[in-house]
């Protein structure tokens, strides 16, 4: 039982991070039908940003805010320079472009920062453990608690934004039918920018949380996480906000439980497992677990 509880906590942790990124994917895809492969790399950008700011002496909260700003800036530049010109260009072009942007970001950071793994050491507070019971063998670090709290809070906040604010409603309108939305006076560009801001900010926070928990980061880290988070978003039902969040958490839990319960040799299959799940889910529910068939709900 302890083993299960311990694994579950680890799974929820990873899942929370996937959820944050998956939401970003989902929001952008809902409006633009664009899979932004560079989204995962924004996580990496945020991490380097925070690292540099901390090294320059900023305290943790300001470094986090700073890195969020940096990441959002990157996200907006990408939107403006790479995606907006291709707005009507068809699927292939946008797909290749987003891939190219991802490769470019990685290579840029590779050249500037070298492939060397870095880490920023967080204050000891985060490593302190709370004992949850089970004869003392189930422990949870403060970092994990922070991850849960922050993720939960952000999801709630974004959910509110989408449901209640004007921009949020405009976003949902565009996701459902951008032509009609434009006819109703919605400024598509503004909505897209807003979507990228929200998505990038979420990715940034995810990046900081991720590196805080798992310590190590390098320029290539974002891509893989991004792909898995994308798989999570698809599993949950891309275009559906709740689906993306649920998909993210679900995938994280499944991935860790799978790795914990299978015999040693199967460790190699951990990443592959994620995609097996993706393929299986799509076979039976082509729109994801929570996605609606045609029209989308945020």
């Amino acid at each position: 039982m302890d083993f299960f509880a311990g694994s579950l906590i680890s799974g929820l942790q990873l899942g929370s991070i996937y959820a944050l990124i998956a939401i970003g994917y989902s929001i952008v895809y809902g409006i633009l039908r664009l899979i932004n492969f560079a989204h995962g790399d924004l996580l990496m950008v945020a991490t380097y940003g925070a690292w540099i700011l901390i090294a320059r002496g900023l305290s943790l909260p300001f470094a986090v805010i700073g890195s969020v700003l940096i990441t959002v800036a990157f996200g907006l530049v990408i939107e403006r320079a790479a995606y907006r010109p291709l707005r009507d260009a068809g699927e292939e072009a946008t797909l290749i472009t987003s891939l190219a942007v991802s490769i470019f970001l990685q290579n840029l950071f590779l050249m500037v920062f070298t492939p060397k793994n870095r880490a920023f050491a967080l204050p000891g507070f985060f490593s302190e453990k709370l004992v949850l019971g089970g004869a003392g063998s189930i422990t949870i670090t403060n970092m994990s608690i922070v991850i849960f709290v922050v993720t939960g809070g952000l999801i709630a906040a974004v959910s509110l934004i989408i449901k209640k604010t004007r921009l949020g409603i405009a976003m949902r309108a565009c996701a459902e039918n951008s032509t009609a939305a434009k006819l109703m006076g919605v400024n598509l560009n503004a909505v897209v920018v807003f979507a990228f801001v929200v998505g990038s900010a979420l990715a940034a926070v995810a990046g900081v949380l991720y590196s805080g928990q798992y310590v190590s980061f390098n320029p290539s880290m974002g891509f893989m996480i991004g792909i898995k988070a994308f798989a999570a978003a698809v599993i949950g039902g891309i275009g559906s906000f709740a689906g993306a969040a649920a998909g993210g958490v679900l995938l994280g839990v499944l991935e860790i439980l799978f790795a914990c319960y299978l015999p040693e040799g199967a460790g190699v299959y951990q990443t592959a497992f994620v995609f097996l799940v993706l393929i299986v889910v799509l076979l039976f529910k082509p729109n994801g677990l929570f996605g609606a068939a045609e029209g989308r709900r945020s």
Binding site: E91, L95, I227, V234, V274, F275, L278, I279
Partner: peptide, 11 residues
């Protein structure tokens, strides 16, 4: 489209 692309990555 994009879904397929990601599934090929999974492949």
């Amino acid at each position: 489209g994009h879904y397929l692309a990601v599934m090929t990555l999974g492949m």
